[in-house]
Design a protein around this nucleic acid. Structure first.
Lengths: 129, 129
DNA sequence: CCGAATCCTAGACGATACTG
DNA sequence: CAGTATCGTCTAGGATTCGG
């Protein structure tokens, strides 16, 4: 049992890989994928249909990244037809709560943001910009 | 006092603007900007230096988007030298908590993620991929 | 000094068709 | 079913320069 150096990141340090992690969390699909896998393991096309609007190619590459990051596990069953299941790892499950909070915030405030943006656009337009 | 239709978003509906909101939250700098403004109003270069690694142009455009979305307020003071302050609106303040949670998660787990990615890369390499 | 306007590139993302 | 392959697009972000 070796002691591990428990290293804490600092998102405000440009050299810290935390920046990279934040970038990945911020990609277009990660939040939705992590969020939907909270209800249990899912197959490729289950995820694809649940999310909607994501192409197979993009889903593949996003899932790959998440597996590499240790957030998801990919399990292949030797069956015909083939079956592949994706599920959250412990690390992935620990991300689910913050990520769901962000999604809930977005859902709760989307109306206000859209309003604000419309008002802003009008103001710009009437200013002749 | 008019009743407003309180419309709730659904991030899993491709047609819902919640998707757009999530995209914005996920850009490279929004999390850090919202987070740092929690400690009070800041000037352009204060934000720039606090974050580190962001160019003026990108900071300008990100701030503009956040103002348009109603998350930030931009206040110009007629002074010499000129002074401009950015601060969180109420809406922005409501975002700070979920966003800080995400940053904290990233900071706490960056080591594990980097490890996982390294191990994954090695496994790929030794498999001759 | 505080920022804004221009130009440019990398890579994320999408559409479509195809394979083991 | 679960992806690959190919091509095209779009824009966030970076380097640089300019105005007030």
């Amino acid at each position: 049992m070796s002691m591990r150096v428990r290293w804490e990141g600092d998102a405000f340090d440009p050299g810290c890989p935390t920046r990279v992690v934040l970038d990945r969390l911020g990609d277009k699909w990660t939040v939705l994928i992590v969020d939907i896998l909270d209800s249990g393991p899912k197959r490729f096309n289950e995820i694809r249909l649940a999310i909607g609007g994501i192409t197979p190619k993009v889903l593949t590459s996003t899932l790959r990244s998440l597996v590499a990051d240790g957030l998801l596990e990919r399990e292949v069953f030797a069956e015909v037809p083939p079956r592949v299941e994706y599920s959250l790892t412990d690390l992935g499950r620990s991300l689910q709560e913050p990520v769901a909070a962000l999604r809930r915030w977005a859902e709760a405030n989307v109306a206000e943001i859209v309003d604000s943006r419309d008002r802003h656009d009008e103001a710009q337009a009437s200013a002749g910009v």
